[in-house]
Design a protein around this nucleic acid. Structure first.
Length: 426
RNA sequence: GGAGGAGUGGCAGAGCGGUUGAAUGCACUAGUCUUGAAAACUAGCAUAGUGAAAGCUAUCGGGGGUUCGAAUCCCUCCUCCUCCGCCA
């Protein structure tokens, strides 16, 4: 969330950002309310502090009076303290109300989009940041979508997934399972080579973690929830991996902090239907390798570029045609300031599929996470956080199967061959 | 799941109702000394709110309570350790 002081000083900028995000209702009032609540909070705080200070002093005096045996003086002071306590109780109640209001208000304001973010409503308005310049694979009429290829070569059994769990939980087998495992290792090795520390995090997280990275309350319905233990199944490794640094003050010299992690991801995808959910296009459980960086605020946009390069390198090694989109305001995630999506061309479906999303959250996420560092003046400052998928498995497998299909089977790109242990799916 | 013990600053560890936001040691930072380093000595060294600042306030695992006053007493939850049970 945004800091109140930032909101105070940048009202116009925020309103402009909300317009870019295609927010219909006027948020001007909300911003004014937030500032009013914060003013009231400060005032109440000051009043409260004064009373507390008074009582503290009185209590010390009472202690002294008792020692001197001046019971009566002590007792009259006690009455004053008691009177103050009533006022304190009331002020404390006011404080709680104001903080609740303030927090709820702040949670409704999304991050301010970066200047380069185009205005727009839906994914149709996203800007093509880097077009694919090579030829798209032309496989003719014989090109099969991945769900048919998966069946033909016995790689994925969607029906068995339904039997065991339900729709959206594919079961990989044989060479399909090997491909899955090989890709995970390939992505992790590439991330390690790029200097990311590998993490194997918990797959269930508590409320505090889900809140800190912004999944709560914005995306509550998206997560599977284990009521009995009050835990959430992670929708992305971003949640546990970024939370490693929740409430941590890092040394400036430790920047950049680079973490990577492979995890399954669980998403309820409530309300999804139609062709988007066919095959591996949209599933409830998929595997993903995530890269996360925590960096100095001045460096975050340069770091974003290096993360784009990293993802682009992976796709090149997998010999997949891709393009990069700059998300428009309407498609931009709540917590993000700037997001680039990678799409690979899906030759069997004749469409582009999103396989990665790389974002700079600036200090929006770190404000909730409380990831900070000390600057040159020894002042505590919020760090910037970024993350990206490198990469999401299910859709990569989909495009890999579709693009590399040949009459003799499915060709495994060279970079991947020693990871999966074969060069052809037959 | 049952029984017992414990949670204090970056770490170790005192304090167990009253100038204690917290002794002491280690670590860390700066200075003195030194050709340089080490050692020694001196000083600094939690987070947050508020304020121009001095300061004031909150925080000794979380929450609640007793009291004029709580790190210290009570309740509750969480976590860790030991033993028993169960179990990859």
């Amino acid at each position: 969330m945004l800091q109140v002081n930032f909101i105070r000083q940048n009202k116009e900028r925020i309103l402009k950002g909300l317009a870019t995000r295609n927010y219909k209702e006027d948020s001007s009032k909300l911003i004014d309310s937030i500032i009013e609540w914060d003013d009231a909070r400060k005032e109440t705080q000051t009043a409260l502090d004064e009373l507390l200070a008074k009582n503290k002093l009185f209590s010390k005096e009472i202690g002294g009076l008792f020692k001197q045996g001046k019971q009566e003086d002590a007792n009259s002071l006690k009455q004053q303290v008691d009177a103050n306590k009533v006022k304190i109780k009331a002020l404390e109640g006011d404080m709680r109300d104001l903080k609740d209001k303030l927090d709820n208000g702040l949670l409704q304001i999304p991050n301010v989009p970066h200047d380069s973010v185009p205005a727009g409503n839906t994914d149709e308005d996203n800007e093509v940041y880097k077009e694919w310049t090579g030829a798209l694979p032309n496989l003719g009429d014989k090109a099969l979508p991945h769900w048919e290829l998966a069946k033909k070569y016995n790689l994925i059994d969607f029906e068995l997934g339904v039997k065991i769990t339900g729709s959206g939980f594919p079961l990989f087998r044989g060479q399909g399972a090997r491909l899955q495992r090989g890709l995970i290792n390939f992505f992790l090795d590439e991330a390690s080579k790029a200097g990311y520390e590998e993490i194997v995090p918990p797959l269930l997280v508590n409320e505090a973690s889900a809140r800190a990275t912004g999944q709560l309350p914005d995306k509550e319905g998206q997560m599977y929830y284990v009521e009995k233990d009050d835990l959430y199944l992670i929708p992305t490794a971003e949640v546990p991996v970024t939370n490693v640094y929740r409430n941590v003050i890092v040394k400036e010299a430790d920047f950049p902090i680079k973490l990577t992690g492979y995890t399954p991801c669980f998403r309820r995808e409530a309300g999804s239907y139609g062709k988007d959910t066919k095959g591996l296009n949209r599933v409830h459980q998929f595997d993903k390798v995530e890269i996360v960086q925590i960096v100095h605020p001045e460096k975050s946009y340069a770091v974003l570029e290096t993360m784009l390069d990293h993802v682009a390198g992976l796709l090149s090694k997998l010999e997949l045609p891709y393009r990069i989109l700059r998300l428009c305001g309407g498609d931009l995630g709540f917590t993000s300031a700037l997001t680039f999506d990678f799409e690979t061309y899906s030759a069997g479906q004749g469409r582009w599929l999103e396989v990665s999303s790389v974002s700079n959250f600036e200090n929006f996420q770190s404000n909730r996470l409380k990831v900070r560092y000390k600057d040159a003046n020894n002042k505590t400052q919020l760090a910037h956080t970024l993350n990206g998928s490198a990469l999401a498995l299910a859709r990569i497998i989909a495009t890999l199967l579709e693009n590399h299909q040949t009459p003799d089977g499915i060709r495994i790109p060279k970079a991947l061959q020693h990871y999966v242990g074969f060069d052809m799916i037959k």
